[in-house]
């Protein structure tokens, strides 16, 4: 029994599930990355994912068109980001508290709207909702192994991959990206170089909202095909954790996200058998994040102590 489980960790299916599970975490982590690159802490990623996941489903249900639903979800994500921008930059509220507040009543708010339209408080299962497709790429799908991974994924997964590349180019190769990083590293220096720091910070928040919204909608419009209460389940926070561990390093950001996704996959594999207690198996991904984040900070602590890096 144990053997078959461990064997299943080295199968194609397992690799595929990592790919599937990584999409929302990757999107959440770049959402955290882009806002922190201009020096804005967006901890509301979890709530944006929740809002957009719901808005996508409801939009898709109302318009009976998954793409229009997706558009509505994006809009809601961006509006939420703008709400954070408005309160933290124009109204002088602490961005962290705004984020905590949003995260905390995200579920209530989502249920409020779900109830208005579906008449239910738990899931959107009763709604006939068109969803986004999975895409077969002709030609590639026939290649063994690689073809299986690359082809047949959900639409938003492909979009996520494209965004990962475009974002890298934007941040590290274009003037706009350089200016954004400058805002995060020394806002005064950016300002005196004639850069409008606030505009770039708002822009980065909008992008952050955009990415988080995609992550949320991947869950509802692609992966689970419905909205259900608590479906984001800390994946927004995993993105924030990955960004914290990576500390501005794009490669490390992606790798940490993939590792977290892998632990989610492990937890799902373990859950298929009865020899592990399901309650504890369910905590594996969270435990992994806990361990990685703590380990990263301990390493950093000793690096400071031994004079390898300066305290920030």
């Amino acid at each position: 029994m144990l053997k078959t489980i461990f064997e299943s960790l080295f199968t194609m299916k397992f690799l595929l599930s990592i790919v599937r599970l990584s999409t929302p975490i990757l999107l959440a982590s770049i959402a955290a990355f882009i806002s922190s690159s201009t020096g804005i802490v967006n901890i509301a990623i979890e709530s944006i994912m929740t809002f957009s996941a719901l808005a996508g489903i409801l939009g898709s249900y109302i318009t009976q068109n998954a793409y229009l639903g997706c558009l509505i979800g994006l809009l809601i994500g961006i509006l939420t980001a703008l709400l954070i921008a408005f309160f933290s930059m124009k109204m002088g509220a602490d961005a962290i508290f705004v984020g905590i507040a949003l995260n905390t009543f995200a579920d209530s708010l989502a249920i409020f709207f779900l109830y208005q339209i579906a008449g239910e408080k738990g899931t959107s299962a009763s709604l006939m909702t068109p969803i986004l497709p999975a895409v077969d790429i002709p030609g590639i799908s026939s290649i063994p192994i690689l073809g299986e991974i690359i082809s047949g994924q959900y639409l938003l997964t492909y979009l996520c991959w494209i965004i990962l590349i475009v974002l890298y180019i934007l941040v590290y190769k274009t003037p706009l990206g350089m200016r954004m990083r400058a805002c995060g590293l020394n806002a005064d220096a950016a300002k005196t170089a004639g850069i409008n720091v606030q505009v770039l910070q708002v822009l980065s928040l909008i992008l952050s909202g955009f990415f988080a919204a995609l992550g949320g909608m991947y869950l509802s419009l692609n992966y689970l095909k419905i909205f259900s209460k608590g479906m984001v389940a800390g994946q927004g926070w995993m993105g924030i954790a990955a960004n914290g561990i990576a500390n501005g390093n794009y490669g490390a950001l992606l790798i940490s996200s993939l590792i977290f996704a892998a632990f989610r996959a492990v937890s799902i594999v373990f859950n298929t058998s009865t020899i592990f207690p399901t309650d504890l198996v369910g905590t594996i991904p969270y435990f992994a994040v806990f361990v990685f984040v703590t380990a990263a900070s301990i390493i950093n602590y000793y690096r400071i102590k031994h004079g390898k890096v300066e305290e920030q």
Binding site: P175, M178, R179, A182, L185, N186, D188, A189, A190, T192, A193, G194, I195
Partner: peptide, 19 residues
């Protein structure tokens, strides 16, 4: 107080804003 970004190169600091 210098308005420079220590982790950027000299070039990047100079061209920042008019690249």
């Amino acid at each position: 107080h210098f308005m420079l970004i220590p982790s950027f190169s000299v070039v990047d600091n100079i061209i920042l804003g008019s690249e």
